[in-house]
Amino acid sequence: MDVETFWNLIESCRRRTPDPDERVVWLSGQLARCAEPEIVEFQICLGRVLSPTFTWELWAAADRIMGWCSDDSFFYFQLWLVGLGRDAFERVTRDPDALAELPEVVRLVGRDHEDWDEEEWPAWEELDYVALRAFTQVTGRSECDFYDVVDAQRGDDYGSLDPAGERWDASDDAEAERRLPRLSGMFPVS
């Protein structure tokens, strides 16, 4: 599966429903129609697509929006960005402050995190399990088998273990105003 096919699946999914759970079911169903190598390649392609989002700048943007962002929640945030579609994903990857333009972010402004609906949270963990579900359904093999096949096919293409760029504190208002001026205005530190 190449990047174009990957994004075509994501875009088709987006057009079908805004509901993340329904998207997961649809994507898993689409992948279950594929041969094993293509299912595995979807997972590998997901990793490649996510690679340029693994930056301290984008992590700080996620931290600013959510008020705090662990390594797991940042990964789920990156997956959520994929779910926004290729155009939004690429704009935000180039300029994390462009998150301020997205309706999915704008609707969160001024609201307490506890009032966000589950579907509104900028996180989509389940995207990481779509290919796994299709693989186990198609092959009857285990989760461990899936990750073994992914690792064998991916080889040494793991990317960096540390985010790119300079780490900085997103709760530092002065630094956030300099680096993420629109987001820092929309999501002030309380």
Rank of each mutant, 00 (worst) to 15 (best):
P96A: 11
V130P: 10
G83E: 03
E104P: 07
V138A: 07
P163N: 13
L99C: 09
W124L: 04
E90A: 12
E120Q: 14
A131W: 11
G85F: 05
A170P: 05
E118Q: 06
L108M: 07
G140S: 11
R86P: 04
D117C: 00
E126P: 04
L81D: 01
A98L: 06
H113Q: 05
L102Y: 08
A88R: 09
P163R: 15
T93K: 07
V138W: 02
E126M: 13
L108W: 02
E143R: 14
S160L: 08
L108T: 00
E125I: 02
F135I: 00
R167F: 12
G155C: 15
C144Y: 13
G110I: 12
V149G: 12
E104Y: 11
R154W: 03
D169F: 15
D117Y: 02
G83A: 03
L79M: 05
E118Y: 14
G85L: 01
V105C: 08
E125S: 10
E90H: 08
Y158C: 14
E114Y: 13
C144E: 07
Y147T: 03
V138K: 07
A170K: 04
V92A: 09
Y147M: 05
D97C: 02
E101A: 04
D156S: 14
E120Y: 02
W80C: 14
T136R: 09
G165Q: 08
